[in-house]
Design a protein around this nucleic acid. Structure first.
Length: 922
RNA sequence: GCCCGAAUGGCGGAAUUGGUAGACGCGUUGGACUCAAAAUCCAAUGUCCUCAAAGACGUGCCGGUUCGAGCCCGGCUUUGGGCACCA
């Protein structure tokens, strides 16, 4: 009987679905394990062979954990809100929901063919009102919370209000947009509207004016992680800075905790490092400089990490967007400053980046007073200082900061070195090394010492205070788009008011066109009757990351109508044990999710501080493109080896009509009409194509569809091959030609059980040799599975198979364990063989393997094997039978003569004292 | 510019973490079976020199530590990724 993967795979996929084999429920008798894939955005192009890489790895792990007796939660769903469906809707008028449903169905079909062990009863889509009800719920919770820096957690806004009513802001230590001082009387005297807008200063989900990334091409604002190099990540449209009032999430309140708790996560160091950089903690000092504009004085605060260089300050700089600009611009500089500020404002983000090297700025006309020296220094305005970081104002020390240096050179400002012996004639000396000079009481100190001393001095003398700043900004949460979650907010007399929880979900309304309205309002402004109780509803929608921030919680309890997740259920599943997905979410989803989870934790809705314990980043599968070479001006194509003899143009050719780099000539002619009459110059009767590793994409004609692989080789082969390509975490090119190897492996595996026509498994007792082959494999799988070295595990299977084939072993005692071991990797064939072995379907488990211990026969024949680190390295003939101690002594003794022994005897006798780990007597 | 990571045959990749480099697979070559092909099986396959045996050289480059380095240290080169005026 031949290995008929088609009928086997169809049979078992149907069986799993019918029997709900992978349905999971809370079960206190078993340990839980939660394996999660980053859910996909269902794009119109469908899956290519690169997408399932991570899914296969996580599926293997899930199935392995099940074998080991864990209660595994392994769900899948779709991140279904998003731009492409909306863009498509704008072009074609087709409702994004229709597009999305079609794409989801296509994805599901493709996924089902690969034999994943998902619990599909838990499937969710972020665009489903039953799902986004809980996204809206979480938003309202954030709206209804503030962040207390003293207790380091989110608290109900009602507490803050009560406090303001009695004490005002006295003693309040809260995360805020700007420091405000209010007495209780002032607060109580405010109108409802004033109170509402004042509270925005503290709410975790708040509305506020801020400089945003505005993308004209998409007609919406974007978060920082959605912009790269001044262009939108989706679509690649230019992005500019614009001041707008937007909903925001006070992620920055959590910066410290997000940074600190990275420590305990089992994530790769590089990913943690990326998050650390994105959070960007820096400890410095805020120093107050008094300023003089004509005869007016105004104290301003600057932030610096190098107070020690304060004696080297020769000027100060304000960000053009800073509020201080208006205050500090002198009469005679007004015009110049206004011109500069408006010029800066006109630039797009991309232009600003492109012009990083050019230095611009304008003098404000006022001066600052150095609080330590009393010296008067000019205050400039320049775009190299950012309004959004620190206080938007800096003290400039050109001698020891390269940016200040460039500025000083350009505008001819003085440069005063304050570290002994440094040369600042060509560039600044930024290193924190050397001895201080020209610096009053700091003179003679080492720089590192001086930093601390200067901080202490500033604090002791009331000139400033220590301050930790983070680069992490609040997340802009509004999008001027249709296909997203509506905000459950209406405007009652202009006051943003939450739609009550019991009226959630607030369902996205139907509209006729998905474009922004003619007056520039978001598409929702077109909706008829987009009101709540007669009041207008918010017209922007939530961003992509809203729906993906807590989906892992919803999977635990996807049909619960009363809560995002039931408390008991949450306590059972806790958090995700293993999360697999791409590294591209490092500074987006993976930050937002951690923030979201911590917020819910603060409010007591979830029991774990962190959402994802262990994280694996699967590498990208690159495409392997093929080329043909057309002789210029003809329709003749020349084979790779001969192309240098002609002038040719390189043309991408569909990899699906190329096998082993040999072109299928007939298929090529049929591929496109213009090649119908193509002629070929062959080498050795074949047309050899060129190749290159490129991104897998339609335009390169190098996309390989997993469906095709499933048709030709089967899902088990696809699964094995994807894993065999290399380590899961590494990027590697897809080349279909290697797939025959693993396909052959499965065929051979089948042949251990089946002859041409017969079932050939016997009940004979296994030999020691056979047991050894099996146990090598068991050991390998055990040690590899946690490190995701599935490629080497599969190699071990191939080795075991070769050994067993050579031994002509068809014994149940060996083969049954083999089926169990292989089942996570190639589940279909294993289920089939398991049933043929006489077991009930769906009962594969890691129960019992025949025992095997390598027997050591201690012989008195004086041959010893010396091993390092547990492995036998060589054998050595010694004069007589010895005790272990005597052998050790002898080996040590030989060590001293090792160099001479090496060449003469049968051993490479190189042993270092202390390096002998153990000696095995054979 | 700054911060991570990588570099091993014709190709994808192994190497017990300092101990026989190139496992396993692909490809290639030769052979068996076949009228033939496919499939399958067997053998060879890092490079050089050789009829062969033997030998020499080999983990991006230069140097170092060590009895011993793909692995550790110093200095480069190339390449992938992240950040980019964050004071």
């Amino acid at each position: 009987m031949e290995y008929d993967f088609k009928s086997i795979e169809t049979k078992w996929q149907a069986w799993w679905a019918a029997n709900k084999t992978f349905k999971s429920a809370e079960d206190n008798s078993k340990p839980k394990y939660y394996v999660l894939d980053m859910f996909p955005y269902p794009s119109g192009a469908g899956l290519h062979v690169g997408h399932p890489l991570g899914y296969i790895a996580s599926d293997i792990f899930s199935r392995y954990k099940r074998l080991k007796g864990f209660n595994v939660l392994h769900p899948m769903g779709y991140d279904a809100f998003g731009l492409p469906a909306e863009q498509y809707a704008i072009q074609t008028g087709q409702h994004p929901e229709v597009t999305t449903t079609n794409n989801v169905n296509r994805y599901r079909q493709q996924l089902d063919r690969i034999g994943f062990s998902y619990d599909w009863d838990r499937e969710l889509r972020t665009c489903d009102p039953e799902y986004y009800k809980w996204t809206q719920w979480a938003f309202l919770k954030m709206f209804d919370s503030w962040y207390c820096n003293d207790c380091n957690q989110a608290r109900p806004i009602s507490e803050l209000v009560a406090r303001l009513e009695t004490k005002g802001t006295e003693g309040l230590n809260a995360a805020c947009t700007r420091e405000i001082e209010l007495t209780a009387d002032q607060w109580n005297a405010m109108s409802e509207k004033e109170k509402s807008s004042t509270l925005m200063n503290w709410r975790i989900a708040y509305q506020g004016e801020t400089s945003v990334n505005w993308c004209e091409g998409l007609g919406t604002v974007l978060a920082n992680d959605e912009v790269k190099d001044g262009l939108s990540v989706r679509g690649g449209f230019p992005v500019e800075q614009k001041k707008m009032t937007q909903w925001q999430l006070r992620v920055s309140a959590y910066a410290g905790r997000l940074l600190d708790s990275l420590e305990n996560l089992q994530w790769t160091d590089s990913l943690k490092e990326m998050q650390r950089n994105w959070i960007g903690k820096s400890s410095g000092t805020e120093v107050v400089f008094n300023t003089v504009n004509g005869d007016k004085e105004y104290p301003i605060t600057i932030f610096t990490t190098r107070v020690d260089t304060i004696f080297g300050v020769t000027f100060m700089v304000l960000a053009p967007e800073s509020e201080l600009v208006d205050i500090l611009t002198s009469e005679d500089q007004k015009e110049a400053v206004a011109a500069y500020v408006s010029e800066v404002r006109k630039k797009t983000e991309r232009e600003r980046i492109a012009e990083t090297k050019s230095v611009t700025g304008v003098f404000s006309g006022s001066y600052g007073i150095n609080p330590l020296t009393g010296e008067k220094v000019p205050i400039w305005i320049s775009e190299y200082v950012l309004a959004g970081y620190g206080t938007g104002a800096i003290m400039a020390v050109p001698a020891h900061d390269s940016r200040d240096y460039a500025f000083a050179k350009k505008f001819n400002l003085p440069i005063v070195p304050i570290i002994e012996g440094c040369d600042v004639s060509e560039e600044s000396y930024d290193a924190k090394e050397g001895k201080m000079c020209n610096s009053g009481f700091l003179n003679g100190m080492d720089v590192k010492e001086a930093i601390e001393a200067a901080k202490d001095y500033a604090e002791a003398n009331g000139l400033g205070r220590r301050k930790t700043n983070y680069r992490l900004r609040d997340a802009i949460f509004s999008r001027q788009r249709y296909w997203g979650e509506p905000f459950p907010i209406y405007y009652k007399d202009g006051i943003p008011t939450p739609v009550p929880m019991e009226d959630l979900p607030l369902v996205l309304p139907e509209i006729e066109s998905f474009k922004p309205s003619p007056d520039g309002q978001p598409p929702l402004a077109r909706a008829k009757d987009w009101t709540y109780k007669g009041y207008p509803l918010e017209t922007s929608t939530m961003p992509g990351f809203a729906g993906s921030s807590a989906y892992y919680l919803r999977y635990m309890d996807p049909h619960n109508n009363e809560a995002l997740v039931d408390k008991k259920v949450d306590e059972y599943w806790k958090n995700v044990d293993l999360y697999i997905g791409g590294t591209e979410h490092a500074t987006g989803h993976l930050i937002y999710s951690r923030f979201w989870n911590k917020f819910l934790y603060d409010l007591g809705y979830v029991c774990e501080q962190e959402p994802f314990q262990k994280l694996i980043n699967q590498g990208m599968i690159q495409g392997r493109s093929n080329f043909v070479y057309r002789v210029v001006g003809t329709n003749t194509f020349v084979s790779l080896g001969l192309k240098d003899q002609y002038e040719t143009t390189e043309i991408h050719v569909d990899v699906n009509i190329v096998r082993n780099d040999k072109l299928d000539l007939e298929a090529f002619k049929a591929w496109r009409p213009e090649f119908n009459d193509a002629e070929f110059i062959l080498e050795n009767g074949e047309y050899v194509c060129g190749w290159a590793i490129e991104k897998m994409s339609k335009s390169m004609y190098n996309v390989v569809n997993p469906d095709l692989i499933c048709d030709t080789y089967g899902a088990d082969t696809l699964r094995l091959y994807e894993m065999f390509l290399g380590p899961v975490e590494q990027s590697k090119p897809w080349d279909t030609k290697g797939i025959d190897g693993v396909n052959r492996f499965l065929k051979k595996f089948w042949r251990l059980f089946h002859d041409r026509d017969n079932w050939i498994v016997t009940d004979e007792k296994a030999t020691a040799e056979e047991l050894k082959a099996l146990h090598k494999l068991i050991g390998k799988e055990e040690s590899d599975i946690l490190s995701f070295s599935y490629n080497t595990t599969i190699s071990a299977f191939m080795i075991a198979l070769n050994e067993l084939t050579a031994l002509d072993c068809h014994k149940r005692e060996i083969l049954e364990p083999l089926v169990i071991l292989l089942s996570p990797f190639a589940p279909h064939i294993c289920e089939e063989l398991w049933e043929q072995l006489g077991h009930e379907a769906g009962t594969i488990s890691y129960a019992s393997f025949p025992e095997y211990k390598e027997e050591l026969t201690v012989e008195n024949n004086c041959t010893y094997a010396v091993s390092f680190n547990g492995k036998t390295r060589f054998t050595v003939e010694l004069p007589k039978a010895m005790s272990k101690e005597e052998v050790e002594a002898k080996v040590r003794e030989m060590d001293q003569t090792a160099k001479y022994v090496a060449d003469k005897t049968i051993v490479k006798m190189i042993v270092v004292p202390g390096k002998i780990v153990n000696i095995v007597i054979k």
